[in-house]
């Protein structure tokens, strides 16, 4: 009786390990498909598909947002602090869209290297705090910028 229980225990463990390994291999094989977006560096390295639409993710560069004359089209730079891609988008931006914010845009590269987006999603970070605290943190950061270690900047 004890031996059969032990056998069943090993069978269950073997099943979990076996499936874990199989799924691990499968996920590894499809790794690129599971990525939701390409970073500007990957786009610069030519890893993003040139012929069809893909998603581009990164931070909106401070001071780069420009509204075009028609009032609906927006141009801004998306960066991962290494490379930058300029994005052009016509439409309504999400509430969280602002400079310094992480975004994910869906669209296609034009021949001049501008990424023409048909959808812009905002990616927010995992930090939650009241505005006073955020303001105080920012001020402290401004004052001690030289001595502060670089924060996590990728979205």
């Amino acid at each position: 009786m004890r031996a059969t229980r032990k056998k069943r225990l090993y069978l269950v463990l073997l099943m979990v390990v076996g499936i874990g390994v199989a799924v691990g291999f499968a996920l590894n094989a499809f790794n690129q498909n599971l990525m939701f977006f390409y970073s500007p560096s990957e786009v610069a390295a030519g890893k993003a598909p040139a012929a069809h639409a893909f998603r581009l993710g990164g931070l909106v560069t401070e001071g780069s947002v420009q509204r075009q004359a028609n009032g609906l089209t927006v141009r801004f730079d998306v960066t991962d602090n290494a490379k930058t891609v300029t994005v052009e988008y016509t439409g309504i931006l999400p509430d969280l869209f602002r400079e310094g914010q992480g975004i994910v845009a869906h669209g296609q590269l034009r021949s001049d290297g501008v990424f023409v987006a048909d959808e812009v999603l905002a990616k927010h970070d995992e930090n939650y705090m009241p505005p006073e605290v955020a303001k105080a943190l920012e001020e402290a950061h401004e004052e001690g910028k030289a001595s502060m270690p670089p924060g996590k900047t990728t979205p």
């Binding site: 790794n31 599971l34 990525m35 939701f36 970073s39 927010h124 930090n127």
Partner: peptide, 14 residues
Amino acid sequence: EWWNTLHQGPTVTK
């Protein structure tokens, strides 16, 4: 953490 996602990373368990 393994892949880039639109969903943000963990807050409490990091």
